[in-house]
Amino acid sequence: MTNKIAQLRKERRISQAELADAVDVTRQTIISLENGRYNASLLLAHRIAKYFGLTIEEVFLFEEEEP
C-alpha cells in the first residue's frame, strides 16, 4: 500500500513532527509510513485523512497484486 502523506505534507508546508503531534504517533512512524515500510492501522489512516481533510482512499492507495 502506498500513500501520499509526504506529498500532502509538503503541499501544506507541514513538518513530520507537526503531523506526528497531530495524529498522536512518533515522528519515526510518520517516516516509516512515508517510506512505505509500515502500513497504518485503520484508525491511524482515518486520523491522517481527517487531518488533511481528505478521505482515506485519497491519502492511501491500495494496489491489488497481480494474480
Binding site: 504517533v25 512518533t26 512512524t29 484508525l43 491511524l44
Partner: peptide, 10 residues
C-alpha cells in the same frame, strides 16, 4: 507518545 505509538507496539 513512544509508549502508545502503534508502530512501536507492533
Amino acid at each position: 507518545r513512544a509508549e502508545t505509538d502503534e508502530r512501536n507496539q507492533f
